[in-house]
């Protein structure tokens, strides 16, 4: 199955209950920039990568890990961007890790993980301690211990890191400009407004 990045973003947004067209038509600087980038990339075929449903599961998982509520379409795009970059680089390691992650989430949920609402996802993650990358030696890791260990120690910190390294992470601390995004030269001379 050949997917484009645009179709992935639209698909994830649709699966999570957003108007897909709104994702790429959001007003404002960052959203506009993201839309432009997406449009430019729309014609580029993605490398053999995750299926749409796997990607939706991963974003739904990350949404619970990194936030205190539903993420905006733009924030989701940052996550898609991170996952896509990981899975197209690194010699297949992350592709395998994220396939494992999506598979584990679906198995534990007994359904498509992304079909659960936010509260259900949070409860599942809490029940299986899928939020914590620290695994105690004697800890019961549930029915799929090897996969659970892999997800907790590798995928969880990577998804959290990917989000907080993105513009969304800088926005959490109130920064609209940050390393990699140019801004007003005078800004650094006084406290942040």
């Amino acid at each position: 199955m050949t997917l484009t990045r645009r179709s992935l973003i639209l698909g994830v947004a649709a699966a999570l209950g957003f108007n897909p067209s709104g994702v790429l038509r959001s007003p404002g600087g960052r959203a506009h920039a993201a839309a432009t980038a997406s449009a430019q990339l729309a014609a580029e075929p993605a490398a053999a990568a995750l299926s749409r449903s796997q990607l939706e599961d991963l974003v739904a998982f990350a949404e619970v890990l990194v936030g205190d509520g539903p993420l905006s379409p733009v924030e989701r795009e940052y996550l898609v961007d991170h996952i896509e970059r990981r899975t197209t680089q690194g010699g297949g390691y992350y592709l395998e890790l994220y396939r494992t992650t999506a598979g584990l989430l679906d198995s534990l949920a007994g359904a498509r993980f992304s079909s659960l609402d936010l509260a259900q996802r949070g409860a599942l993650i809490t029940r299986h301690r899928l939020f914590s990358s620290a695994v105690r030696p004697e800890e019961n890791l549930g029915p799929f211990p090897k996969k659970a260990r892999e997800v907790r120690t590798r995928a969880v910190p990577d998804l959290i890191g990917g989000y907080y390294a993105s513009p969304a992470g800088w926005a959490v601390v109130g920064y609209g400009a940050f390393p990699g995004k140019c801004g007003d030269l005078a800004r650094y001379t006084s406290p942040e407004r």
Partner: peptide, 10 residues
Amino acid sequence: WGEALRTRVR
């Protein structure tokens, strides 16, 4: 993770 993480970062 979740809300506690966001608060911690902030």
